[in-house]
Simulated scan of single mutants.
Amino acid sequence: METFGKKLAILRKEKKLSQTDLAKQLNTSVSVISRYERDEMTPSIDAAKKLATLLDTTVGYLLGENENADMFKNPDMLRRFKDILSFPEDKQEHILFAIDSMIKATKLERL
């Protein structure tokens, strides 16, 4: 299992950010980012939230709370989930029903 620091480094590199770039955006020092990535230091809750936002992921992904964490690493999936959550509950139910139907049909095609 990847540690917080490893995930942070991977996501930072995927965004083509240097440690200096990320430190500036987080309003901290390069040494702090370096210590995070080496798992020598853990961020505060506020810093973890800001890192997740800057890197288009979730705190849950960074902290390894999710079994299928890659799903929460994908900014397109996150955007879609956020969009769905912004809709009224009845619309959410309709969208999720449609998605469930498509998932079921796709699984049946694999058989």
Results as ranks from 00 to 15, higher is better:
1 M>N: 05
2 E>P: 08
2 E>G: 05
3 T>Q: 01
3 T>Y: 00
3 T>K: 02
4 F>I: 07
4 F>V: 04
6 K>D: 00
6 K>C: 07
6 K>P: 01
7 K>M: 01
8 L>N: 04
11 L>M: 06
12 R>A: 01
13 K>Q: 14
15 K>W: 08
16 K>S: 01
16 K>C: 10
18 S>W: 07
18 S>M: 10
19 Q>A: 00
21 D>E: 11
24 K>Q: 09
24 K>R: 14
25 Q>H: 14
26 L>Q: 12
27 N>P: 06
28 T>S: 10
28 T>N: 08
30 V>W: 09
32 V>N: 11
32 V>T: 14
33 I>Y: 01
36 Y>V: 14
37 E>W: 08
38 R>I: 10
38 R>N: 13
40 E>G: 10
40 E>R: 15
40 E>V: 12
40 E>T: 10
40 E>A: 10
42 T>R: 15
42 T>P: 01
43 P>I: 06
44 S>T: 15
44 S>P: 09
46 D>P: 11
46 D>R: 12
47 A>N: 02
48 A>P: 02
48 A>S: 04
49 K>I: 11
49 K>S: 07
49 K>E: 05
50 K>A: 09
51 L>K: 02
51 L>E: 00
51 L>P: 05
52 A>R: 11
53 T>D: 02
53 T>L: 09
53 T>Y: 02
55 L>Q: 08
55 L>H: 02
56 D>H: 15
58 T>W: 04
58 T>H: 04
58 T>Y: 09
59 V>N: 04
59 V>A: 00
59 V>C: 00
60 G>T: 02
60 G>M: 02
60 G>Y: 08
61 Y>D: 03
61 Y>C: 02
62 L>H: 00
62 L>W: 04
64 G>Y: 04
64 G>H: 02
64 G>R: 05
65 E>D: 05
65 E>C: 03
65 E>R: 13
66 N>T: 13
68 N>K: 11
68 N>D: 00
69 A>K: 13
70 D>I: 12
71 M>E: 06
71 M>A: 07
72 F>K: 09
73 K>Y: 06
73 K>C: 03
74 N>G: 04
74 N>A: 00
75 P>E: 04
76 D>C: 10
76 D>L: 13
77 M>F: 15
78 L>Y: 03
78 L>K: 13
80 R>W: 13
80 R>Y: 08
81 F>E: 07
81 F>L: 11
82 K>T: 02
83 D>E: 13
84 I>Y: 07
85 L>C: 10
86 S>P: 09
87 F>D: 11
89 E>I: 15
90 D>F: 12
91 K>S: 03
92 Q>K: 15
92 Q>I: 05
94 H>G: 06
94 H>I: 13
95 I>L: 06
95 I>E: 01
97 F>W: 12
97 F>Q: 11
99 I>G: 03
99 I>W: 01
99 I>P: 06
100 D>L: 15
100 D>V: 12
101 S>G: 06
101 S>M: 15
102 M>Y: 04
102 M>I: 12
102 M>W: 09
102 M>S: 07
102 M>Q: 07
103 I>H: 04
103 I>Y: 01
104 K>H: 03
105 A>N: 01
106 T>M: 08
107 K>A: 10
108 L>C: 07
109 E>S: 03
109 E>H: 02
109 E>R: 00
110 R>H: 01
111 L>S: 00
